[in-house]
Design a protein around this nucleic acid. Sequence first.
DNA 1: ATGGCAGATGTTATCTGA
Length: 285
Amino acid sequence: MIVATYNVNGVNGRLPVLLQWLAEAKPDILCLQELKAPQERFPIDAIRHAGFSAVWHGQKSWNGVAILSRGAAPVETRRGLPGDPEDEQSRYIEAEIGDLTIACLYLPNGNPWPGPKFDYKLRWFERFITHAKTHLKSGRRVILAGDFNVMPTELDVYRPERWIDDALFRIEVRDAYARLIKQGWTDAVRQANPGQRIYTFWDYFRNAYARNAGLRIDHILLSPSIADRLVAAGVDRHARGWEKASDHAPSWVILEDEPSKRTRASKASLKGGRAKKRRNPARTG
DNA sequence: ATGGCAGATGTTATCTGA
């Protein structure tokens, strides 16, 4: 099965692009961020017509997250992170789909640093880390997918020295991400493509996409109970080149339907073989 | 350091994003 995440930067303005990508990539589950639409203006009819059911949490003008499913309907288990009843921003929604728990998140940007927005980002991140821990303890198969607004390492940004004091790369934020991973999560795109320069976002400014001046800030994290089913993972960077594209590209993972009983070595060869068959030539890892 | 582009709101401009 394919599980993906896509910051669409306006779900209504992006609808033709989103529908094109859904038809092409055929994900089973998709997390969306930055709907930029109030609850009643989520394009549910078009999404149903494309074969998906959905849960979503909209908000006027900003933020907004959704979980789409092509198979069993998502059953919403939570909207909003625990830990701050004052926080009204639509940045987190969670659902069960079969035996999977899917968490869709849009972590605050946090710029400029220093300032209240950066403080809010750190507080939100800590609430998320706390909540993620409870998921791990449950032992269920959990996927955390979304726009984390953090480049985890220097490999994940085209010119790290320029981003040192940016809220997406500040050491406090990278440290928080590292602490999250250390709980036991697998960063699927990195795991499947070690050492490779892979980006998920390219600024609209300065010809960033053509220059490949990108950032890897969208992530798909797997709990241990599903990480052993990872077959391949990557980014559909070509979708960033379409007309009226979002500034983000979709990220995806391919998971085996049944737990693997193969050895690590034979699993690696399966990975290569299957990736070749499944993936569109335009798709890059 | 600035400003470049884009979406939403709802103006003839402002805010936010990353």
